[in-house]
Structure formats: structure tokens, C-alpha cells
Amino acid sequence: MSANILEVRDLQTQFNTLDGVVRAVDGVSFDLARGETLGIVGESGCGKSVTALSILRLIPPETGRIAAGSIKFEGEELTTLGEEEMKRLRGHRISMIFQEPMTSLNPVLTVGTQIAENVVRHMGVPWRAARERACEMLDLVRIADARRRLDEYPHQLSGGMRQRVMIAMALSCDPQVLIADEPTTALDVTIQAQILQLMLELKEKTGTAIVLITHDLGVVAETTERVVVMYAGRKVEEAPVEALFTEPLHPYTRGLMRAIPRLDIEADAAGTRPRLQEIPGLVPRLTQPIPGCAFAPRCGFATGRCAVESPPLLDVGAGHTVACWEVDRVRASAL
């Protein structure tokens, strides 16, 4: 049995639009170990959600497709798996939580029904037992008065509660992998912390590996063990979480870090803190193939080579890889 439960290799997912083919994910690889928490970060539009949807093969077939690459789950290739087998996998061995708890639950079905139908479908237990399981799950995600809540509709619950229901639903069949796509973005800050805490605790209990997709480096720092940084459909850096925060090596990762407010830097005599820096420029359009480094046009370190030749992933040791030609100059410069 391999240590990795999920292995993604050179994944390419493309969409057809009127402007041409969009390469939403362009050659991304990463591994997920059993029981591990992996973060995938990047700005909106960098392809992180599409990566998640690709793993579950939920890319709408009318517009998009997985063009190349391999996704192995427990050693089994998912990109070529039949739709029926895929359906048996979804919600059972790999589950997903979405960003919008407001709209991701069906408004006309009770919460209990929505959890129980998943259990009936995948565990093959009778409806009554599935309702019991649903009740247990609501208890597990710390919804008070679970039995009464089973018969309530989503609109009767608050946003945080709905996300708890989503988590209960996703974990109801003991999945090996839970993919959480921006699970806390739509929630209040205080609720965010509770939900993340809950996910981590449940992970400890169940041993489910988690892929946490977010644009929020703060969330990543608090919850994950390892981080993949994506930019314009590509992986630009991957590192254990401490390494990434102590020594980010890709100029883009550094840019992201400078864009979060910090309290650990002392204010100067005048009481002002250093200004938050934004990354200049815009994410490139993905309809044209990008020959060099996708970040080059916005990068302070870029050279002529960066624009024409794509940098390979460079292993800098201790599980830290980065795709940058100028990594030595970046390392030498101040953060």
C-alpha cells in the first residue's frame, strides 16, 4: 500500500469558450498522503477549484474536459474510470465541500434527507438507519439538538450551520479524501475559525485526508501541513507549511505574503506599519499558450529567459520545490 492516497500528475483541464480554449489547469502535479492536510492556494482564477473538480471528474462535459494527465486514487486511475464507478466513488471515498453553503444545499429537501440519501446510496443501508447516521453526523459536527434539526430545511439554518451540515454530509460515508473548496470564505471570521477547527478535529478522529483549497494564506498557515501554490493554472511552489512561511522562494508566493497584514512587525516611531503591497499587473489570459514563466510579466526578478522558457520545478530540499529560474536571487533578497 502506497503512502499516497492521491497522486495527481501533469493534470491539464481545458474549457472551450468563445475566446478559444482556456487552459484552466496546465500541468499540475501533487501528492496527498494518507491523513494529511494539503493546502492549495492562489488568487481566484488560478485553477485551484478546477483542479478540485477535475479530481472528482465534475467538470461540465458541455464546456470542459480533462485534456491530459493522470489522477490516481489508491493506485486507481480516475481519468479513465467509467462514469458509474466514478459515481460510486463520489461522496463515498472522495467527498467535497463547496464554498457557498447558502446555495449548495437543496432548498426543498430537509437537512436529514440530504445527508441520509448519501448514506443510503453508498452504504446500502435502509432509510431508517441512514437517518440515524445523519443524526450522529449532525451531533459530530456539533449541531445542537440534532434530532430536531434533521427535519429542518436549509433556509432555517444560519450560514455556519449550513456549512456544518455540508461537512456532516461529506463525512457521512467515511471518505478517505475530503476536498474542501473555500469552505469558509462565505462565512463570518469567527465562524470561519470554528469551522476550520471542527474540520481539523474530525480529521484527527476519522483519519480523512483533506485537500483545502483557499485564497487565504492565514487559513493555510493554521490548518495545513503542506502547501501547493498555484498561479495561472500552474504549480509554482510546494513546501511544508513552516518552510513556505519562513522561506518562500517563488516571487509570487512572496508577493502573496506581502499582501497579508502582519502584526509581528513592529510599528515604527511614527506608529505606522509598512504599507501592504499588492502585486502589480494582472493574471494573464489563459487562452494563449504561455511560453515562459506565467508570472514573468508581473515579476520584479524576471529576466529575458523567464519570458521565453518555462522554468522546471527545482527541488531545494526537505520537500520544498519551486519553479523559478532566479531562485538564488530571490532567496538572497530580503522578504
Partner: peptide, 8 residues
């Protein structure tokens, strides 16, 4: 999409 992700 949620229902799909549940493999209904």
C-alpha cells in the same frame, strides 16, 4: 453540483 459530488 453538490448532489453530483455525492455521486447520487
Amino acid at each position: 453540483r453538490t448532489a453530483n459530488a455525492k455521486g447520487l
